[in-house]
Amino acid sequence: MQKSTEIGYNSKIEGEVIVTKLDSALNWFRKNSLWPMPMGLACCAIELMAAGASRFDIARFGSEVMRFSPRQSDLMIVAGTVTYKMAMAVRRIYDQMAEPKWVIAMGACASTGGMYRSYSVLQGVDNIVPVDVYVAGCPPRPEALLDALIKMQKKVETEPVFAELAIAGPFLKKA
């Protein structure tokens, strides 16, 4: 008869304590609750909505809370064609988001301007905001966006939090 083996955390042996690094713990919180700022500008936004709906269900990755206020969001998903008329607004919303913040460029237009080699379209949103993950497709399927989200989580996971704060933060320096 096969015996089941216990894997992972065994509270009977190790007690009610988990030991980890503060950086890892914070990153674990962050990566599992990336609240998106849905910057829906064109047809990619339809796929973004599909990713939020029940069939694809972005909630499985902790990102179901679409925040329409930049103050409450962590991850800007630029979904669609960024025209020059909209560019300053995208930049302003990005500036209004609280740190830490990340950007996904969803689809060909947001990544490079796509098929719009035109006087009116910004040739890639990375001209105005720093992009972490690019998603190919025109428009990308919701699975592709979810893949980008998982890649984003992998990136968030490995970011230094306190190491960086101790260098850059004026508040910590004073103390």
């Binding site: 020059y84 008329k85 560019a87 300053m88 301007g113 080699r117 006087y119 009116s120 379209v121 040739q123």
Partner: peptide, 11 residues
Amino acid sequence: PDVAFTNPAPL
């Protein structure tokens, strides 16, 4: 400034 800018698209 503060409204918009444009650049020529690479053709």
